[in-house]
Design a binder for these strands. Structure first.
Lengths: 119, 119
DNA sequence: TTGACATATTCCTATGATGGTATATATTAT
DNA sequence: ATAATATATACCATCATAGGAATATGTCAA
């Protein structure tokens, strides 16, 4: 299989910088497509297609308002990304708080398989 | 440009599920490629190539040990992902704690548009 | 109805990433 | 030097996807 994932998970959806931008914009306030177009300055089709992707993955939700569609962030599906990244916090959080035990346990007790060779 | 970014930033690198798996494995402890191969059960070439990508983006670092290469996570470059995702925490963190002020300030001053329905 | 407006979808193409196979490089052992 | 081990790189084929253009759908107004 020549290429793994697609648009089924938030990670791939968010890999596209434009989609992060879009989410950032929507994060400020819910808005209709026209506003997004205005704020980002992209062609309408581009906005609509990126929105379609984000919708598929469930990162945004829509509701209709006349001929407009009001989009807003569905942040629950961003949380998995946050959670995943957070599993590495022990590496950058050096003045540990409650994570102390867990982090130290995991990080330090790996034996010195580090830089010794077969004698 | 038909298809935007590639393997230049952590987001795209981490979009590949296998690479997240790999990072998760390396997150436990630093290890040589052979151990990764063993733990994940992937063909060697696959591991090496995914590592190459992660290296390019700076998500892992290597050091040599004889004919082995010891890899470990370079978590500093995962933090941008964490930070980005964290900007949406106001949406899912409803029983706020210390983030209260900040979250509320940011979230509330745009109207309570969170889960409105079609009228 | 017709027309204007707002947004979505279909079709097309080019790029480039992924996985596989084979091969190259580097290091240690004999 | 040769072989064995450990890992990386080059080459190839497939196929998903971003973007563009054109078009479709849906909604309000006259």
């Amino acid at each position: 299989m020549p290429r793994a994932s697609t648009l089924i998970d938030p990670f791939t959806a968010v890999a596209e910088p434009k989609r992060r931008q879009l989410l950032g914009t929507l994060g400020q306030r819910e808005m209709p497509v026209s506003d997004i177009i205005c704020e980002l300055g992209w062609p309408q089709v581009m906005v609509s297609k990126h929105l379609a992707v984000l919708r598929q993955v469930g990162l945004v939700s829509v509701r209709r308002d006349g001929r407009r569609r009001i989009y807003n962030v569905n942040a629950d599906n961003i949380k998995p990304i946050y959670d995943w990244a957070k599993t590495f916090e022990k590496f950058w959080d050096h003045n540990l708080s409650r994570i102390k035990q867990r982090a130290e346990a995991a990080a330090k007790q790996s034996k010195p398989t580090l830089h010794k060779e077969k004698p």
